[in-house]
Structures are given as structure tokens and as C-alpha cells.
Amino acid sequence: MSKVYKTLVTAADRFVPSKLRPLWEHEAGPKTIFFWAPAFKWSLVLAGLGDLNRPVESLSIPQSISLAATGIVWSRYSLVIIPKNYSLFAVNVFVAMTSLYQIGRAIKYQQSKKQEK
């Protein structure tokens, strides 16, 4: 897989405009996992945003707690590692925010059910 990736990067290297060359060559740029891991992690944020329309009674609090904790921990980690990875920081902040919002929705729903009884 590494040879295939290197071949693709080498082929794409010729087409990168000079203005985008600093981003392309950056130590956390598209040539590295530091770029692609956060890029694919945005799918978790999209899933979390999709869950905003989900019925509140079907939300999983333990799942939301684990996603929020993961987002918080990795947000911190992304600013400690070298190179600092602001893309990883941003995606994890959004993962944590969407999960914390879902936790708030679920807790509010559970409290309203208790008050009804």
C-alpha cells in the first residue's frame, strides 16, 4: 500500500500549483497521515450532525460520552504532538461538541420523562 500511495503522491506532485506548494510540502500536509486521518474523521462529525434529527429516545448516552471523551482527549493531544495538527484539533473539537449536545438532549429527555411520572 505504501508504494501505491507514494506513486500517487509523486504523480500528483507535478500538478500542484506553486501557490499551494507550501501546504503540499507541509509536515502535516496531504503527503502524510497527519492530513488524511482528520480528513476522514470529519465523517464522525457528519454522522453526529445527522443524528440531530434522530429521535431523542434512540440516542445512546454511553456512545455519546465515549465520542465526547475521545474528542476532548484528541483535541488536547493534537496540540501537544509535533507537528501541531490544527486540522486534527478542529475535527476533534467538533466531534466533542456534537456529542456533548447529544448528551444534553438525552439528559433533558430523561429528566422530562421523570417529571411526567
Rank of each mutant, 00 (worst) to 15 (best):
I107A: 10
A96T: 05
F40P: 02
Y86H: 10
V9E: 04
S75W: 08
V56R: 11
L59D: 11
P38D: 13
L20G: 14
V80N: 04
K3I: 01
V56M: 08
S99H: 02
K113Q: 09
T32R: 09
K31M: 12
K84L: 07
P17A: 14
E27F: 02
I65H: 00
L23S: 11
E57Q: 13
I81N: 08
T10F: 06
V93W: 01
E116F: 03
T98M: 11
L88V: 00
V80K: 13
L44H: 12
P83T: 04
A28H: 01
S60M: 03
A39Q: 10
L59V: 08
K84Q: 05
G71A: 04
T70K: 00
A47M: 15
T98W: 01
L20Y: 15
K31A: 11
S75G: 13
T7V: 04
V9R: 05
A11V: 08
S64M: 05
F34E: 10
K117N: 11
V16M: 09
A69I: 05
K41Y: 06
Y5W: 08
W36M: 05
L59Y: 09
T7P: 00
Y109T: 15
I103R: 09
N85L: 02
A28V: 02
F89N: 03
L8R: 09
K6C: 02
S2R: 14
D51K: 14
G29T: 12
T10H: 10
S58Q: 15
K19Q: 13
L100G: 00
R54S: 12
L59S: 11
Y77K: 00
I82F: 09
Y109M: 07
N85R: 08
K19I: 14
F89Y: 02
V16D: 03
I72H: 01
I33T: 14
P38F: 11
A12H: 07
W74P: 06
H26R: 12
A90P: 00
S64A: 09
P38W: 10
W74S: 07
K6A: 12
T32W: 08
A47F: 07
S112E: 10
F40Y: 01
I61N: 15
Y109N: 10
G71T: 10
E116P: 02
A12Q: 09
K84C: 04
K41P: 00
Q110V: 04
A106E: 06
S87P: 01
K3M: 02
F34D: 06
T70L: 01
A68I: 10
S66L: 11
I103Y: 04
V95Q: 01
V56C: 13
Q102I: 05
Q111S: 10
Q111Y: 06
S112Q: 13
T32P: 06
K113I: 00
K31R: 14
K6E: 12
G104D: 03
P30Y: 06
Y77G: 08
Q115E: 13
Q102E: 01
A12V: 08
A106S: 12
P38A: 15
Y5I: 14
V9Q: 04
A39Y: 09
Y109Q: 09
L100S: 06
K108E: 12
A96Y: 02
S18C: 06
A90S: 10
P55K: 12
V73E: 04
P30M: 14
L20W: 15
